[in-house]
């Protein structure tokens, strides 16, 4: 084997190894990204779901017409939000979420008053804070997955979760 042939072989072997390493890492990165996307998507939309669940139930309950009207308004706003991670969807989410949260707070205040009037008892924790708390108990804090395990959530080993 002469010098040129040796050089050609070295280059070919290097290229083969390079492609193999690159391919394996790209596959690994893609799966890691998918796992993280599932987590963040879940964490970002659980509150929207909670709000939708409350509003759906309010619509069918025998409560004040103002509360039912508010619930319908909130549901209209929630339906405008798409769930992708593209620029338009993220922008729509950011624009609407503040309005939705504010309207939802008012709805819960009205419901709280309604329950109090009906029972002459204080409503048991009917507030935006309690809804947010459920969201955090179930999905953890969004940022906690970046730094470390979410203490509240990780009752199972980390490797059982995507």
């Amino acid at each position: 084997m002469d010098f040129d042939e040796t050089l050609d072989l070295e280059e070919q072997f290097y290229r083969d190894g390079f492609e193999e390493g690159r391919h394996e890492n790209l596959t690994h990165n893609y799966l890691e990204g998918k796992q993280y996307g599932l987590q963040v998507g879940f964490q970002r939309y659980i509150l929207i779901g909670l709000i939708e669940g409350v509003c759906n139930a309010v619509k069918s309950q025998n409560v004040s017409s103002a509360a039912q009207k508010n619930a319908c308004l909130i549901l209209d706003m929630v339906n405008k939000i798409s769930m992708g991670n593209d620029e338009v969807s993220v922008q729509t989410y950011e624009t609407n979420i503040v309005k939705i949260r504010n309207k939802f707070r008012l709805l819960l205040l009205a419901l709280s008053r309604y329950v109090k009037e009906q029972d002459s008892l204080p409503s048991l924790g009917l507030s935006f804070q309690s809804v947010e708390k459920i969201s955090k108990i179930v999905a953890g804090e969004l940022s906690s997955y970046v730094e470390s395990d979410a203490a509240e959530v990780s009752s199972q080993p980390q490797n059982e979760m995507w």
Partner: peptide
């Protein structure tokens, strides 16, 4: 990967 699975998580 993140973009492809985000919606499913959502």
């Amino acid at each position: 990967g993140f973009d492809d699975s985000f919606e499913q998580g959502a």
